[in-house]
């Protein structure tokens, strides 16, 4: 059996979090290669269905990263996203997805180190949980 390498998808806003990942790059801060980014203009663009789609397509962990409160390029899209994903993360268990597989956080364009930390931490958490196997909706899934 081959070793499990968790696949992580990060939805990142163009202005802060994507910049944070770029900053990690510029500083040569290594993070697991299985962490891959989907750029959107604002974290407010990310729909819960997109996160579910990522899980369905084989992601073992998903993050949504936006600008810190008050820093949103579009004034407050990040706060709209926060409200949405706070609720969403509480519903994950019903889909048989452990809450630890999902992270919502703020990463500033200057926070390469934070991006590395958040990405590495999620990868480690997912590594511990093992591969995600989605069997269906609304079930007694992984313990939360």
């Amino acid at each position: 059996m081959t070793e499990f390498t968790p696949k992580i998808v990060a939805f990142v806003c163009n202005w802060c979090a994507y910049g944070g990942a770029d900053n990690a790059g510029s500083q040569k801060l290594e993070y697991p290669a299985a962490v891959k980014l989907i750029r959107v203009m604002c974290s407010g663009r990310v729909e819960p269905e997109m996160v579910m789609q990522a899980f369905r397509q084989g992601a073992d962990g998903v993050m949504v990263l936006g600008c810190h409160p008050g820093d949103c390029h579009y004034r407050n899209g990040n706060m709209k996203a926060l409200r949405r994903f706070r609720l969403f993360s509480r519903l994950l268990a019903q889909f048989g997805i452990h809450q630890d597989r999902f992270v919502f956080d703020w990463v500033a364009a200057s926070e390469g180190k934070k991006f590395q930390t958040v990405a590495t931490r999620l990868a480690a958490a997912v590594q511990k949980l093992g591969p995600l196997s989605l069997t269906g909706y609304v079930r007694q899934g992984e313990p939360s």
């Binding site: 203009m41 604002c42 729909e47 579009y74």
Partner: peptide, 9 residues
């Protein structure tokens, strides 16, 4: 300005 927040909602 194209943030897309309305699309998500």
């Amino acid at each position: 300005r194209g943030c897309g927040t309305c699309a998500a909602n």
